[in-house]
Design a protein around this nucleic acid. Structure first.
Lengths: 340, 340
DNA sequence: CTGTTAGCGCGTTCAT
DNA sequence: ATGAACGCGCTAACAG
């Protein structure tokens, strides 16, 4: 392994000079700089990050904590984060919490151990607070993405849950729907909570009935089992049976649509469906689901940017909050409903 | 920051004893072990990986090099790799090469710098060889996934390109297709090359014509532009115009289907399409594309397993090669073609 | 079973 | 503009 000492010897300078050349720190004469750089090139020197971070306390590693990289929302976030990280000379460590605070906690310890410079986190739920506070205790900056947690003074990149929920629901209301159900994730997750509240507020605003039989929580993971829930709603007496469902996440919508297909219940004729978040449309065929498309790539890209600014002390003291709008696509799954 | 010295002092032992407790190395009396563990717990000690790897040359970091995490094939690989890594106490570093050898090379240097214990690599193309050899020079083990490169003595997890291609094509042949085109990635990528050869062999075996106007290379990235290519093929005189296309990757199929839709060319009536690799079926609706579904998660999971065995010296000297079969789904896009 | 010594590769500090 | 000495936190090697 080539070290700065090897470079130093061959270039007839001290190790310190080599270090300075590498880090562009201090004053170096053009001549020695060129000589050192030539030797570095010649010997193919690659600095040892471990040694470096041992003294400098900087690792040039960013970490991304998501619940599941397999969710296209988070996949795009990862890509965005990685692009920005690479652009700024950082690497990206990937963590899947599976919405499990304990697993998340384990990761946090590993990240602290590795000396990550900062963490981009979509926390498992509100109980993740202690994990993030642990980061703070170690002076490791973090940026919340997608999921807000109260009383943490940190930068955030969030979705406009209130507005987007409202627009999705008002679309349904305009189609004549009066009995609108919501299938949501756990209310301990900020996005679920905010969409829940926005749902109540919007129905209230339009003086529509709210029925606890229409309000359900599952979870946001891929295999969320909503069949019991949906079945129960469809079995409600005619006058209480919802005519539309608001799915608060992509996978929840997935499972709703799947259930309906399997049970030959027609969307939107039998029941309409709208969805917060979306799926990549790989086949370019006419998409079916009315959905709010979030700029997921930017959650990662901007999140990484805020994080790096925080790490490199180029950010203002006060936490920044970026709220990203969604683009709503009105489609077949909530098309005009003749009867009623 | 708590160090082993803090632990040592408080537990009335030497730092070395603490180190031994942490690493489960050497012999420690039950009594001192418990005492030390109690103090570790009490002070919330987290080991410093940098210091550790500086002496031990082990970082407990695995790296994953893919072309683009946004391709669901690689997303699943990442999830599989991460699961196995976590299970074995490793973290996972993510790298997107964008099929660019120079970008890949940059990453390789960063990985070497960080002291990664091993790399799971789906290389950009055959020229990635030098990047992998650089890893070898630094005694960093790597496992090739998906994309083979000649003359590298390393573990591999690959797709059964020959068999799968053949089965896809023979399916078309059984449907009566005699003029079958292929739209492929660059032949400098092993999967493209092998699928290309298998295409030629299969047509040959069935004594079908081979026409260079039916053979095209684009690339495997998301935005592969195949419209010119497809247009040219469709404009061929009737007797030369292919009746089916073999897309050698998911995104290539995406772009073919998209082009056909936009230009009102009907699949499979006007032209049939089969695809190597697949897409997640989020909506549970009847999928359209005849495709070979690869066990992508296992590419990552098994790859990580081989890699860790190699790192921890529990693997046999000779490189291992795992070939994973695909499951072919026969669907609408290649359904029986009436005319001809 | 436990402790001492030395050094991993580098950057900080201070000196020149 | 350059260099020397020291120490970051830990473990390998040896000693006891």
């Amino acid at each position: 392994m080539v070290t700065i000492y090897d470079i130093a010897k061959k270039a007839n300078v001290s190790a310190m000079t080599v270090s300075r050349v590498i880090n562009n720190s201090g004053n170096i004469s053009q001549k020695t700089r060129e000589k050192v750089e030539a030797v570095i090139e010649e010997l193919g020197y690659i600095p040892n990050s471990s040694a470096r971070s041992l003294t400098s306390k900087k690792s040039k590693i960013l970490s991304l904590m998501v619940t599941d990289i397999t969710n296209p929302f988070f996949t795009n976030i990862a890509r965005g984060a990685e692009d920005k990280a690479m652009q700024m000379g950082y690497q990206l460590m990937l963590c899947n919490s599976d919405e499990n605070v304990d697993k998340e906690s384990k990761y946090i310890d590993m990240l602290i151990s590795t000396g990550t410079d900062g963490v981009l986190a979509a926390p498992a739920n509100d109980s993740s607070k202690k994990n993030l506070q642990k980061l703070a205790k170690y002076k490791i900056p973090y940026v919340l993405i997608d999921r807000f947690i109260e009383d943490l003074a940190c930068d955030q990149v969030l979705s406009d849950n209130e507005m987007t929920t409202r627009r999705l629901l008002e679309h349904l209301i305009k189609q004549g729907h009066k009995k609108i159900a919501i299938i949501n994730g756990p209310l301990e997750i900020a996005t679920a909570k905010e969409r829940h509240n926005a749902y109540l507020d919007t129905l209230d605003l339009h003086e529509l009935p709210i029925n606890e039989n229409w309000i359900h929580q599952s979870h946001f993971l891929r295999d969320s089992d909503i069949s019991e829930t949906v079945k129960k709603m469809l079995d409600l007496p005619e006058n209480e049976r919802p005519t539309a469902i608001f799915a608060t996440s992509n996978f929840i919508a997935t499972n709703i649509v799947r259930y309906m297909n399997e049970n030959h219940i027609k969307i939107p004729d039998d029941i309409a469906v709208v969805c917060y978040d979306s799926f990549p449309n790989y086949l370019g065929t006419e998409p079916f689901l009315t959905s709010a498309e979030q700029p997921s790539y930017n959650f990662g890209y901007l999140g990484a940017q805020l994080l790096i600014e925080r790490i490199e002390n180029t950010a203002p003291e006060t936490p920044r909050k970026i709220v990203l709008p969604s683009e709503i696509h009105f489609r077949e799954s909530s098309a005009f409903k003749r009867t009623e």
